[in-house]
Simulated scan of single mutants.
Amino acid sequence: MNNLIPRLIRWTLTGSLLSVCATAHAELQTREIDYQVGGETFTGYLAYDSEVSGPRPGVLIVHEWWGHGEYVRQRADMLARLGYAAFALDMYGSDKYADHPSQANEFMQAVMSDREAAKARFTEALSVLREQPMVAPDDIAALGYCFGGAVVLNMARAGVDLDGVVSYHGMLATDSPAQPGEVKAAVRVFNGEADPMVPAEQVADFEAEMTRANVDYEVVNYPGAKHGFTNPEASELGRRFELPLAYDASADADSWHKTQQFLEALFR
Results as ranks from 00 to 15, higher is better:
Ser255Asn: 01
Ala173Leu: 06
Val135Thr: 09
Asp95Trp: 11
Arg73Phe: 01
Tyr222Arg: 00
Leu263Asp: 04
His68Trp: 03
Pro57Asp: 03
Asp99Gly: 09
Val135Ser: 14
Leu28Ala: 14
Ala98Ser: 07
Val187Leu: 15
Glu51Asn: 13
Lys258Gly: 04
Tyr92Cys: 10
Gly164Arg: 01
Gly44Met: 11
Ala213Cys: 15
Asp175Lys: 13
Thr43Asp: 08
Pro101Met: 06
Pro6Tyr: 09
Thr30Leu: 03
Glu207Cys: 04
Met210Val: 06
Lys258His: 06
Leu82Tyr: 08
Gly69Glu: 11
Leu82Asn: 05
Val203Trp: 15
Ala158Tyr: 04
Asp216Ala: 03
Pro57Lys: 00
Glu209Cys: 01
Thr259Arg: 06
Asp254Ala: 08
Thr230Tyr: 08
Ala125Ile: 06
Ser255Leu: 02
Leu172Trp: 04
Gln109Ala: 04
Arg188Cys: 03
Met108Gln: 02
Glu182Leu: 12
Phe122Arg: 06
Met1Leu: 12
Glu51Trp: 02
Gly181Thr: 02
Leu46Phe: 12
Asp138Trp: 01
Gly149Trp: 05
Ala76Ser: 11
Ala80Asp: 09
Asn2Ser: 12
Leu79Val: 03
Glu116Asp: 05
Gly44Ala: 13
Val72Glu: 12
Met210His: 10
Arg212Ile: 00
Ala253Cys: 09
Tyr84Met: 07
Leu237Trp: 10
Pro180Ser: 10
Ser255Arg: 01
Asp163Gly: 05
Leu162Val: 11
Met78Ser: 15
Leu8Ser: 15
Ala125Leu: 03
Val166Asn: 10
Pro232Trp: 07
Ala249Tyr: 03
Arg268Asn: 13
Val189Glu: 03
Met210Gly: 11
Trp11Met: 06
Gly149Glu: 05
Phe122Glu: 05
Val160Glu: 07
Tyr48His: 14
Pro232Cys: 04
Ala76Leu: 09
Ala225Asp: 04
Lys184Asn: 11
Gly224Lys: 04
Ile9Lys: 02
Val62Leu: 13
Asp95Tyr: 14
Pro180Gln: 06
